Simulated assay, not measured.
Amino acid sequence: MKLHNQYEVPTTSRVTVRNDGSDHIGGSIHFNVADVRSETLAGTDAGTYVAAFVKTVESYLNSDEWREEAAERTPCEFRPAGSEATGQQIITMADRSVTFDPRKNWDNQTIAKGEVLAGSVIFTEPTDTALIISHRVSILDHTLIAGFTEGALMQTVEKAMSDIMFTATGKIAKILSTAPSTEVFSEAKPTGKPAAIAEDLIDILTMHVNQTVGTSLADFVILIPVSLVPVFDRAAQRAGVEDIEALIGASVQPYTGTDYGLFLLPKMFTSLSYREGRNGDIWKVQATRNAGSQAWDIEIMARVDIVANGKVKVKLTADGLQTEAVAFPMITNVKLTA
């Protein structure tokens, strides 16, 4: 973003006074209202700031760069307007017993547990709850009176992008915590120094790898509460590796809000399905003038479906003639208890 600097600051203020002999003296004061103050190259116009903010955010969120980064963070798809989220059919890699709501077979036997054989096909569907990502902020005119620079604007944009990412992931974690295909485990919360805590957490995650949809932590995206980020960061420093992902050996996405524990999302399944608008954009960024508050209201929005309901057919009779589609645990949720 480049700000125009075409205004020359006056050396004196100009005040006009009108006295018509009555007790009421009128007049006017002229002062600098330019977009840019030439002596500091700092913008002072709220409208200019908002326009630059909206353009910067909208250009990034609807760019190919953002889509590539989103796909690296979590398995996702970007689908055209009016289309449905894409379900997948993935062949299981290992035998596994699945517990489900009791079903009755033809012999009037109640079956609550069935064997899923290796080579069976898992079907995925969207959850009953879709997510509307909506973030709103008001920028008051008086907060920009002191001026702003390009660097200050970009810092604000980067912070906004980070907040949106963490908050949206927290909403996704909430949906996943109650999804039928999420398998929940409780483990004692490790204690001690950061390096020891991080090592114990990695061991816990490793022990809960779902072998039917992955063979190692590298096959998963791990969602972690943001409170654990400093712990893993410090452990990474102690271990002499670049970052958290290098330490764990898997893609990591922090989230804010309620602590729902740690999640292991299999990379081979699309977890998120972003809806494009009719213009091809996923994100909508709009600014509205709020005259009553002398401010600009900015809203950033997107819609995404959570494709996390896995289903698989299990046999209810020994001969395999009667089968039933039941929820299949694909996502692992490890809750840490004190």
Rank of each mutant, 00 (worst) to 15 (best):
E8Y: 14
V304Q: 03
V307E: 06
Y7F: 10
T74F: 06
A152N: 11
E276P: 01
S134V: 05
T48N: 04
T178V: 15
S22M: 09
F148R: 09
T212I: 00
T167D: 02
G249P: 13
S13C: 04
I222L: 07
G192C: 05
T16P: 01
T44H: 11
E158R: 12
G257V: 00
Y7K: 08
R96A: 15
F185K: 13
T258S: 08
S83F: 04
G257L: 04
W106T: 11
V9P: 01
V334S: 10
R303P: 13
I204E: 11
E84Y: 06
R18H: 08
M207T: 13
N333Y: 06
S28I: 13
A173N: 02
Y49N: 08
F123R: 15
N333R: 15
T206K: 02
I132Y: 04
K267D: 08
I298C: 02
A239D: 10
L176V: 07
A325Q: 03
I164A: 05
P194G: 05
G119R: 13
I145H: 09
A295P: 07
I244D: 04
G292T: 08
E125K: 15
A295N: 14
A338E: 15
K193C: 00
A198Q: 09
M161W: 10
L321I: 01
I164Y: 07
T48D: 03
E276A: 10
A42C: 08
F232R: 09
S134Q: 04
I282F: 00
S293C: 02
V326Q: 05
R136N: 04
A152Y: 09
I111S: 12
G87D: 02
E187N: 09
V312H: 14
I204G: 01
E84K: 11
V54K: 02
L140H: 06
A246C: 09
A146T: 08
F148T: 12
R14A: 13
A195C: 03
D35S: 07
T110E: 07
M165S: 12
G21K: 14
K193R: 07
P329F: 15
A198S: 02
K284G: 08
Q88F: 11
N279D: 15
R18C: 04
M268P: 06
Q89H: 15
H208N: 15
V307I: 11
V17W: 02
V229E: 12
K113W: 02
V221A: 11
D259V: 01
N333V: 00
A146Q: 14
V213H: 06
I202R: 15
A51C: 10
W106N: 09
G280Y: 12
V50W: 05
A196D: 15
A218C: 03
E115I: 09
V226A: 13
N279G: 05
Q88A: 11
L316D: 03
G292F: 00
E242G: 10
E68F: 13
S138D: 12
D23P: 01
